[in-house]
Design a protein around this nucleic acid. Structure first.
Lengths: 141, 141
DNA sequence: AAGTATATAAGAATTATTCCAATTTCATTC
DNA sequence: GAATGAAATTGGAATAATTCTTATATACTT
């Protein structure tokens, strides 16, 4: 049983506006992984004068309340990797520190059959996300 | 046995300039995952008048020759995920399509001890990268 | 229904990155 | 070793994604 939009907005403690409602509907219907621009193009069908800002603000709002999330952390700036051997990353979600590691155990497990049907898998990347020791020390959490 | 800078640039078929040489040294020395700005700040110690453009151009050059790589594909625009359950992604490196999947087999394997020492791991994300069926059809490769 | 805090629209501002044109420099030839 | 021409650098303008600002409009409480 899914919450009604009214309850969702009530729980967030914000007003339910037509724009927000429509963005919510678009997102609920969407099985892809839209960029802000995709949402903007879609909602303009009904709200031709909506501003980009409203879309961005609403996406941030939804994200801060755990309704959606960004596909990647670290998206603000491009980061470069100087290690060209196959490896994975530990990423600190606070300070964005990245540490390389290898993990043969996980490289060997065959990919799920369904995924193989979606296309040709060429690479496997694992990201372990958490809080690094430095950041743990800083806040004690 | 590592190639000399001279050989590296020769292999790339480009001129060896002091700026490029210094950026190469900075990257070789660097165990972090620098953003362009980090490289810029570092090289300005020796080349105070270097332009951002040179840094970006050189990083692209190195990337196109396989000396370094970007930490993430998909970094151009923020993409949103409307599926808040734990899952992983198949990503088409051509069209950037993203498909969700779950993979219990891989979720259960304990993380390497060394990683646990680096911090508190809170989430595990796997990205299978390849070419989706649509893109395979288009080019026949 | 009125009042008020909150949300929106439009465009300016910001940030990361790329483009452009003028100048400089590398590396090859003489 | 100097001249030369192609390639590289600089500095600033341009672009693209995202955020901020301010005046106006609107949802929700009373």
């Amino acid at each position: 049983m899914r919450d009604s939009p009214k309850d969702i907005f009530k729980a967030m403690g914000v007003r339910m506006t037509p724009q927000r409602l429509e963005i919510l509907r678009i997102l609920e219907k969407c099985n892809e992984h839209p960029a802000a621009e995709d949402v903007y193009e879609k909602i303009r069908e009904r709200f031709p004068s909506i501003s980009f800002d409203t879309v961005y603000r609403t996406l941030s709002l939804f994200e801060s309340h755990g309704l959606i999330k960004k596909v990647h952390h670290l998206a603000e700036k491009t980061r470069y990797d100087t290690n060209m051997r196959h490896h994975h990353h530990f990423v600190c979600v606070r300070c964005k520190k990245i540490i390389d590691f290898t993990w043969e155990g996980i490289d060997k497990i065959p990919a799920p059959e369904k995924v193989k049907e979606w296309g040709k898998v060429e690479d496997r990347y694992v990201e372990l996300r958490g809080i690094c020791q430095d950041c743990l020390k800083k806040t004690g959490v």
